[in-house]
Design a protein around this nucleic acid. Structure first.
Lengths: 199, 199
DNA sequence: GAGTTAACCTAACACTGTTCGGTTAATCGG
DNA sequence: CCGATTAACCGAACAGTGTTAGGTTAACTC
């Protein structure tokens, strides 16, 4: 195929197609050839719009995290922390399959630094020392990322026989998958609330 | 090479060689061919001792988590949670490069279920409802895994120019890598303490 | 001593991310 | 309007991946 009249590809189209594949087939389900195929194109063509697969994933991650809410600090720092964490987790849990990728290292993006700057500033403003502020921010990230990926209740089998008599305190663990989403959210809220209260 | 007089390979040798590679070269640095080479053997030979690479990683993960301390519940549930979380994180942070693998899903193995059973039982015993107990356990895992992989302070560049005037509250972020390990631990302890206190 | 099993090998398969060089259409300068 | 440049795609290839099939020989069992 020569150069087409209207371009088939664009960075945006590539990103959203890639994200769709990740959501559907998991992180390992995304390959450049498969992505190209779904866009009606050969793999090599993608590299005219995307520097590398890793970069593509980073861009996707950044776009997912765009809508994280930093507005709560106008009220007070506790509200700021809660809103930030909540919207952060929501953004991640809408695309859980990409979270393992984030585990490889901070998608050291501009946007991401901006958020950290706001968090730190707000906490210092509220009277925390710089070191404390840093640690609190870290703790908030621990909880957000932990909640996003542990996706705790997903790890359990739906077969009661897998727990049986051996683990008497897990005798209802097989029910977890059915309520996984709700329980994950509630667990996150409980953890976040306890953390902020305990500070 | 025919069958050697004394076997060159064993599941144990393979596991520890693999872990050494992961610690040294990262998770992506481990390939079956490289692993075989370091053991003085061809890649195919590994499959006489190991079912699959994924299984190998799961086994390694399980062996790392073996020494998690469940004894604190003899004192009280708060102490139990703290000791469990602390030793859990310590085990993971001794081999940080394998943590991203765990993010792909719980190495849902026998040992891991045993620990969850103990946690749940102790909390219910202490008066929490079953649902609350489940959520508290989940929260603990959030913090442990979050702390292990966010490995927060590692994400920052050591070059002050990367933050400069744009992010005034991050003006000392370039110092983070130097104290990463200590800060990560302190952040974890602060988060854990706040969480347990807030319950 | 024969037969079986265990431990290794070589070779291959079907993938992966990425690069190189080529072909053609759109676009811009004069 | 024409020539040169650029942009968008393709085919083929490279080096690497996990894994399997089939072969060879040593060690063990009866």
């Amino acid at each position: 195929m020569p150069r087409p009249s209207t371009p088939l590809l664009s960075a945006d189209r590539i990103r959203s197609a890639a994200l769709a594949i990740i959501d559907r087939d998991g992180l390992d389900g995304l390959s450049m050839r498969k992505l190209a195929a779904e866009l009606g194109v050969q793999a090599a063509s993608l590299y005219g719009h995307v520097r590398t697969k890793d970069q593509l994933l980073n861009d996707i991650a950044a776009s997912i995290l765009q809508p994280v809410d930093m507005s709560g600090f106008d009220v007070d720092w506790r509200e700021g922390l809660v809103r930030c964490a909540r919207s952060y987790r929501e953004a991640l849990s809408a695309h859980p399959n990409i979270v393992p990728f984030l585990a490889y290292g901070p998608a050291g993006r501009e946007e991401s630094l901006r958020r950290l700057d706001i968090l730190n500033g707000a906490l210092v403003n509220a009277g925390w020392s710089r070191r404390e502020a840093t640690m609190i921010v870290a703790g908030l990230m621990f909880i957000v990322f932990g909640a996003a990926l542990s996706s705790f209740s997903n790890g359990f089998s739906a077969d009661p026989a897998d727990y049986g008599d051996r683990f008497p305190n897990l005798d209802r663990a097989h029910l977890l998958p059915a309520v996984a989403a709700e329980l994950d959210r509630d667990s996150f809220e409980l953890t976040l609330a306890a953390f902020v209260r305990g500070l």
